[in-house]
């Protein structure tokens, strides 16, 4: 099934949701969906007879770094609208078709519903995205750091574009 057909199916199933296909980019199209409806959509994608997306190939967090300058009422310039995204690459082993989903959330409140209960392999991927970007996956059973040390500074996420290496970790100088 092609991506267009899948989108049509999704739109029929969830008429009130915003489902946007983003194929401006020349290489791979993906579907943008709302963060809070993610579990319902994913469950539908997995269980529907004609879709059967049984594997989550990849889940990656991305810092879009897309803040734009806006002026508030007092005329001060400030950056706004920066988002973090999560990309889901789905694949159906039985029907052999692929789909990429994208969810974007504002960096001030980066909350995405977890898909761990739908695809077990999302567990560690989501922990990694939390570890690296600070994206909070709601309803995740064990959302703790995975690759960074457990006592790494709270609120410091290394793969964010504005990350700066801290000078000390546990009293040890880092850029030694």
């Amino acid at each position: 099934m092609s991506v267009e057909e899948i989108i049509q199916k999704l739109k029929d199933k969830f008429p009130h949701s915003e489902i946007i296909i983003d194929n401006e980019l020349p290489v791979e199209p993906f579907v943008v969906i709302n963060a809070l409806e993610l579990p319902q959509i994913c469950k539908f994608l997995r269980d529907d007879e004609s879709l059967l997306f049984d594997t989550l190939m990849n889940l990656s967090g991305v810092d879009d770094n897309n803040a734009t300058k806006v002026k508030d009422e007092e005329g001060n310039e400030k950056l706004e609208g920066r988002t973090l995204s999560v990309y889901y690459h789905l694949h159906s082993m039985k029907l052999d078709h692929k789909l990429a989903l994208k969810v974007s959330v504002p960096i001030e409140k980066p909350e995405v519903e977890s898909v761990e209960s739908i695809w077990k392999c999302a567990d560690w991927h989501e922990r990694e995205a939390f570890d690296m970007y600070g994206i909070i996956f709601l309803n995740h059973p064990n959302l703790i750091r995975i690759l960074m040390p457990y006592d790494w500074e709270e609120g410091s996420y290394p793969l964010r574009k504005d990350f700066e290496t801290p000078e000390f970790y546990n009293g040890m100088k880092i850029p030694y």
Binding site: L25, P26, V27, E28, F30, M57, N58, S60, V62, D63, Y87, H89, A100
Partner: peptide
Amino acid sequence: PKGSIYTRVENPKGELGYFIISDGSLNPFR
């Protein structure tokens, strides 16, 4: 060009996937 791609190959250990986002510059964005 600007865009994103996910490609996978069969490694000895399993499926190795690269997800690359390009912002059109010389360095990969992600």
